[in-house]
Design a protein around this nucleic acid. Sequence first.
DNA 1: CGATTAATTGTCAAGGTGACGATAAGTGTT
DNA 2: AACACTTATCGTCACCTTGACAATTAATCG
Lengths: 244, 244
Amino acid sequence: MTESRTAPARFPVTVDVVALTVADDALNVLLVTRLLEPFRGQLALPGGFVLPGEDLAAAAARELAEETGVEHVPGHLEQLGSYGPRGRDPRGDVLTVAHLLLAPNFPVLSAGSDAELAAWYPVSHFLDGELQLAFDHERILADAVERAKSKIEYSPLGAVFCAEEFTVAQLRAVYEAVWGTRLDPRNFHRKATGTPGFLEDTGRTTAGDAGRPAALFRLAPAARPAAGQPTRAVLNPPLMRPPS
Amino acid sequence: MTESRTAPARFPVTVDVVALTVADDALNVLLVTRLLEPFRGQLALPGGFVLPGEDLAAAAARELAEETGVEHVPGHLEQLGSYGPRGRDPRGDVLTVAHLLLAPNFPVLSAGSDAELAAWYPVSHFLDGELQLAFDHERILADAVERAKSKIEYSPLGAVFCAEEFTVAQLRAVYEAVWGTRLDPRNFHRKATGTPGFLEDTGRTTAGDAGRPAALFRLAPAARPAAGQPTRAVLNPPLMRPPS
DNA sequence: CGATTAATTGTCAAGGTGACGATAAGTGTT
DNA sequence: AACACTTATCGTCACCTTGACAATTAATCG
């Protein structure tokens, strides 16, 4: 670290959160409608300024809670990367540390915050340029989706998109939504249930749906996201995504 | 992004660089000896404050050039992650954006900077706790090494540790040093030369060493790190590192 | 020139993957 | 109750990759 004799420059620092979930067989992202300038009326990632004495992950969790009206947001939160500080906010240089949340489809209180309306939107609209986002949030979203795609390949985190207990078919639907591909149910079943340390059979099954009841699984203890732990890769060899 | 009516907090922002190279069959990191408080006399990662109007990558490259005395530092630079702002600098909250440089073993002008002495050190001393680093740089170094280990698995970036042209054995030595394992020369040769889009035969060979001359390769055009491009993964399936 | 060293090419069994057939076990229909 | 229908799960098989290791090639060394 080089010292400087003059006082170091200071930057406004924000955290933004790309919260992803799977709903209706599609990857969705949590967005807020901006009620203030700049980009008033446009959609943006939830986020806000880091407060003095606050760490990055804490700030991300706080903003998420504030803007969704959900006290304890479920899922897996990790840092994505930093952007800026130049040329991303018309008001001036702002550094933002983007975060990624992979979560089950929890409901947001759109009537919650007084500043913004939060809701889930399919990511496809924004990745193909059909709809626009405020700031440089389209780029951040693209990076986040790419990270999510590769993350579920070698980590057990695909399961955090599901409820506590889930069927192999539900897990497969997650992979299909995130990767945007179809997977062979039989081969996926073999791989998912055959990977040691990934899934744990609860012994119970679904009921009421059409077709044969499906066994219910949960994440194996070794694969469960422990606070602070980097969620060891247990999918080795990884669940390979078919070549696009 | 949530607005706040009051002016947002501002933080000092630094960039730190974990520059890794392979020398003497070991992974080495570029460190500077601090000549000023805090942590005076201790080893630290090169880095410094981001200047107004400067982007993160530019700041990292500038600090690297300043502290090594090398105008155009070779290798592949990418962002690693952000740390802080709390509890990492005794002078107060400082946010740092760590970067990772994977580079061939270039010489540093230790007589260069007037503020610090830069030199290469084997990473093993710091990962096993034998030697200490200033600030939270041990943690950053550990994260960087982990990133490097996985990066060379599925990307062609192992080659950036080598010179422009290199032999398969030299590339294998890189993998062995970074992963800390031994690899079978025959299987490694098959995989490295057999992966489409990875290596390109120059047609020339080494001479003068003991043993049969080795063919000289360079990175294939498709695998070469283009400025701005995220260096597409071409190792598919990846070069698998043996289970530790 | 033979011994040594290192690079490169082969061989082979074991295990993983993709494609796809066959069963199993429910629900809905007649 | 028998049937069609749907979804889950198990099985099969050819192909490919990997890890272990033998054999060959082509230099240097003494």
